[in-house]
Design a protein around this nucleic acid. Structure first.
Lengths: 234, 234
DNA sequence: GCAAAAGTGTTGATTGTACACCCATGT
DNA sequence: ACATGGGTGTACAATCAACACTTTTGC
């Protein structure tokens, strides 16, 4: 499959391409990012995003999936390209261009064993340790993107289990936007949109009374996007 | 300055990186894109975006500026990264990852001689010819981005001369969003924001009565962004 | 004097925001 | 019985959207 450089591109210089993943997870009211302690040079022992190099016979998006899978064991995860970072000195060891992605995962589904063997740890988005290279910049950009996208697209649900309660959903949005929301208005909006479906069962973890479980309504969302109706979460 | 690959990266394969520019210009009520007729292989004779290869000693953003400058003679232009395209087969001749940028230029300032010697031509955004590789996808994404960004940031002004009239500005926004706007509401909003300053002189090109010239107010914009006030154009 | 574009305010509808009390249950 | 979080509705404010006539001037 691998193509050799054709005559008309012979003068050009190939460059190393990395892919780095900002992995978001949500635990108990807190929005977190998964970081790894590097066990290789350069930057051995420092915290960094999970990353790897793009292979010559590998599509870029698939490389991001591979890298995410290596750390979490997950497939079929929300994954979106963020930005390409191409400053000359960004990697202290060599010229490496990095394409950053961000992922939203449901923590319960991830493989804890894997993350442990890779020396990975969750950090609250408000309390990220010093990171290697320009990884901090990537995290900041990813958070901003998540904030913006979560207003108009239902990506928040990616961070929750299939069944969730309205208070849980609200807490998630509060964590994403780092602000408190009015529970009456929040409930009103989300229910009015028709995008969540009530179940009979209650979740009793959060309170004595218990809160009803809901499901995200994929069909309704497809219907709304097709009809071009714009949606306002939060 | 050029670094050799250090021992810990030796197993990795470098890849060719291209930079492609979606160049927007606005002429007489029409939003256009600047395309070049390729005079080299692959795709000789086909329309494509202006592009080039990233050099090993060149920062990514500067490569985009260089490529834009090669075609237009312009520097200090609004230029923003769009997306990295990394499918395996996107370039028919070799494995090339491309980072797309989009630029907003004031057509009057560009160097017509240069664009002519490069076999470049302006095409209305609604009537783009068949393009090489995935360049059409880049154009579509760039237009959507321009539409979104122009609502919350004053990037439309980049496409106009320093002095412009309100009807001109409205026409530009109509072209960007491909819809007609109410002139009373448009004028009201933009004046209320305080972001444009009226001049004494009139532009008589568009009508017998003539329309007053305005300037974009950079200080006011800085003030608003600093105070965190969100702005609604259009 | 008329065609052509510039300029100007008001009203009703919709949307967003603020706010306080009762309910169900486990201890 | 009380502490805890879940659930509910209303009123005011702000924003958005629709709409028609007068002004200026070159021909």
């Amino acid at each position: 499959m691998q193509k050799s450089t054709p005559p008309f591109y012979r003068q050009e210089t190939p460059i190393l391409i990395a892919v780095d993943c900002v992995i978001f997870g949500y635990h108990e009211g807190q929005l977190n990012i998964l970081l790894v302690k590097r066990d290789f040079e350069p930057g051995l022992g420092q915290w960094s995003l999970m990353g790897g190099f793009l292979k010559s016979n590998e599509a870029l998006d698939l490389a991001a999936q591979r890298i995410l899978n290596q750390l979490t064991g997950l497939t079929n995860v929300y994954l979106e390209q963020l930005h390409a970072y191409g400053d000359l000195q960004r990697d202290t060891a060599a010229r490496v261009l990095s394409v950053a992605y961000y992922a939203l995962i449901n923590v319960k589904n991830s493989n804890e064993q894997l993350t442990q063997t890779q020396h990975a740890e969750w950090f609250p988005i408000n309390n990220i340790p010093e990171l290697i290279f320009d990884h901090r910049e990537m995290c900041d950009k990813a958070w901003k993107r998540l904030q913006r996208k979560s207003l108009s697209q239902p990506i928040g649900f990616e961070l929750l289990p299939t069944r969730f309660t309205i208070p849980q959903l609200q807490q998630l949005y509060e964590a994403i936007h780092n602000e408190t929301l009015d529970k009456r208005n929040f409930r009103k909006n989300i229910l009015l949109s028709g995008l969540i479906t009530k179940l009979e069962e209650k979740n009793k973890e959060g309170s004595k009374k218990g809160a009803f479980y809901y499901l995200f309504n994929t069909e309704k969302y497809a219907e709304l996007t097709e009809s071009g109706t714009s949606i306002q979460f939060k």
